[in-house]
Amino acid sequence: MYESLAIVLAAAHFAAALSLLNGLLTVFGQAKIAATAIESIARQPEAADSIRGIMFVGLAMGETSGIYGLLIAIIMLFANPLVDIFVRMLG
């Protein structure tokens, strides 16, 4: 009875860890944005202000997928509906 609950909880924690792995690709995308912005500023220092503004917006856009992964991890850990259903089934 409790062993199966433990397995469900372990699976939820693994799912949270897996959903945080998308940070790898998010960081690659953000690194590309920052590197390209630095290259453009080095090539054209007079456009630095507008490039910096666009870079921040691009970073925020790229960060969105990482944030979605974080939210899925938080839902898995703290507000998992499947674990609630399982606990109610156990009684």
Partner: peptide, 16 residues
């Protein structure tokens, strides 16, 4: 949705 999740996720991660 994406606009609100971006701010919420950043603030909540710091809080947690």
């Amino acid at each position: 949705v994406s606009l609100s999740f971006r701010l919420f996720g950043n603030m909540l991660s710091g809080t947690i």
